[in-house]
Computed example of a mutant assay.
Amino acid sequence: MSKAKRLLDILLFVSAKKKFTAQEISDEFNISIRTVHRYILDLSDMGLPIYAEQGRNGGYTVLSSRLLPPILFTEDEAVSIFFAFQSLHYYRDLPFNTEIQSASHKLYSSLQEEAKRKVDQLQSYITFWNPKRAIETPLLKDVLEAAIENKNLHIHYESKSGTTTKHIHPIGVYAHDGLWYMPAFDFTKQKILLFRVDRIVSIIESEENKEVFVNLKEWFSSNYENKQPIRLHVLLSREGVRQCKSEPNLEDLVVIKEDGTGYINAIIDKGELNFISPLFYRLGMHAQIVEPKELVDILRQQAKDILSMYPEND
């Protein structure tokens, strides 16, 4: 049996037991105690965290079982992993950014030359572009871990009204348009609100949670329901159609006519008006709002605010 195969077998054995003696490995694999100690040193050099306990009843303890045994990938599987890495390339911050870079380096180093050439070509000819944000999100990983561990947080949050203290329960994080968002239950307002993760100035403290909240997947599903239904009716030029078809929240609502123009005539949630108003303001003459009146009023107020900054000279 090759040394590599023997090391893999021992790695699987000690990872399962966590506590073991050299004699146990010697008996299991029919090798000498001296060889066992040499193999344990090799595993330690490979990164397996093993602690040696001294004394008559001493032995070894695997401090962590999180080191995975070797996984054999086909060439196409390895290339597909780099394809997935490409989708994350334009995000400034990721929850496990250092680990992703480390995994990518280890995987690339293990590839044969032909596979490396495929990966290099992949990275040169395809990417998943998102606007590269200069805004840092240093607490992204902390927030995600709090959600996974079902913890409540007390945070300092920066908003239009200044920096305030929030008592929240995060239910997850998601990325959109280069930014990270966190739906969280606000204990003061007794409802789930949406927060920008980059606007979390600091986490004051965390606490154990005993209540049951929805998770991110459940929140997305329930969020599609229109809690305050309102009709959105918009007439679109060709350019208006093109831009609305590029918006994930609107693309399925656009109806295109034979001449390339189109319209939206659908029921949405009233709470979405503030999120979609910047798009229609930007479209200007390419989108005419028929209803709701609330969206027209938002656009009129935005136009007035801009005009007030540039008064006409007498």
Rank of each mutant, 00 (worst) to 15 (best):
E208N: 15
R34P: 00
Q288E: 15
E207R: 15
L273Y: 06
L194R: 07
S15D: 03
Q243S: 05
R199H: 14
F195Q: 01
I230D: 04
F195N: 04
L235Y: 04
I148V: 14
H105A: 14
F73S: 01
L8A: 11
G271E: 15
E211D: 15
G240P: 05
H154S: 14
R56N: 06
K245A: 02
Y310T: 06
A184M: 02
K141S: 08
P70Y: 08
F280M: 12
K17I: 03
N152W: 04
S161I: 09
D42F: 03
R56T: 14
S80R: 11
D42K: 09
L299K: 03
D198L: 09
R199T: 03
L307W: 06
L41C: 02
I289A: 00
K270L: 05
G162F: 06
G59T: 04
L107Y: 05
K293P: 02
Y39I: 01
D76H: 13
A22F: 00
V212L: 15
D252Y: 06
V234N: 03
I298V: 13
F73D: 09
Y51M: 11
K304L: 09
S64E: 09
S222R: 10
H89M: 06
P70G: 05
V212Q: 13
H154G: 01
K304N: 06
K19M: 05
G262A: 09
F20M: 04
Y263G: 04
P183Y: 02
S15F: 02
